[in-house]
């Protein structure tokens, strides 16, 4: 039971117009594990990540083929409601994108929409903010605007927002790229804790970060998966020459 993959892709390809961004990717992701997707910019790692909860639906002229299996169902099946998928697969974006609402409302909005009563909502907001290690900093000003928070705090708020829904998978698209080193360290600590409960898939262009936070690393190049191994393995004894060249800074 414990080793069953929670979300997997099979021959997944994504193309924008004529340009193939992701080509024939088959991967499995397990719960209670952090997977890092690395690769040079434009290698398709972000597109792949966004394909996992159908966030590419909003881009023009995107074609997706192959399958993403979640709960035994292909989420690209025409019978699937993508909104239900996104409620179970949370997402944290490259730049913090809190709603233009209060700190409390940022986390509470979606929870309330799912039909929870207001006292349950309050409880969940608190749990999520504690889980995102933000509660101590904001508990006295829950009603003030989320924009008053620092960049790192905003990003943790976005993580809390995703967590409050109780998702099974959390996707993070370069969550630290807009943050300073101290805020980055806090997010990395947080990821290590969240791993106890969620399947976390992180896109990062920072190889040291991938090494620090992940259990498994997937190396993307030109839309294809070159290597997918345990992190310690890939960083110490990469199987592929390309991976080795990338990790040693020959290109990227």
């Amino acid at each position: 039971m414990g080793l069953k993959s929670i979300i997997s892709t099979s021959h997944l390809s994504v193309a924008y117009g004529d340009k193939v961004a992701v080509e024939d990717v088959s991967l499995e992701f397990e719960s209670r594990e952090v997977s890092a997707l690395i690769g040079p910019s434009g290698c398709g790692k972000s597109t792949f990540l966004r394909a996992l909860n159908r966030m590419n639906d909003f881009l023009d002229d995107v074609r997706t083929s192959g399958q993403v299996i979640f709960h035994g169902q292909n989420i690209y099946d025409s019978k699937i409601d993508p909104v239900l998928v996104r409620r179970r697969i949370g997402m944290v974006f490259q730049k913090p994108n809190p709603f233009p609402k209060s700190i409390y409302e940022n986390v509470a909005w979606a929870v309330r929409k799912f039909g929870f009563k207001e006292n349950e909502v309050r409880e969940r907001v608190e749990v999520a903010l504690k889980g995102a290690a933000l509660w101590a900093e904001v508990k006295d000003r829950l009603k003030s605007s989320a924009f008053e928070l620092s960049g790192g705090q905003q990003q943790r708020l976005c993580i809390a927002r995703a967590m409050a829904l109780g998702p099974e998978v959390i996707l993070m698209d370069e969550p630290c790229s807009a943050l300073d080193p101290i805020a980055t360290a806090k997010i990395e600590d947080l990821i290590a804790e969240l791993k106890e409960q969620f399947c976390i898939i992180v896109v990062t262009h920072n190889m040291q970060q991938a090494e620090r936070i992940s259990d498994r690393t997937v190396f993307f190049l030109n839309g294809k998966v070159i290597e997918s191994e345990a992190t310690s393995h890939i960083f110490n004894r990469p199987r592929e020459e390309l991976t080795k060249n990338y990790l040693t800074g020959r290109f990227g």
């Binding site: 966030m55 909003f58 979606a110 927002r161 995703a162």
Partner: peptide, 11 residues
Amino acid sequence: KLREAAFGVGA
């Protein structure tokens, strides 16, 4: 990014 945030939480 506001729309993405909202879709991201399953709106």
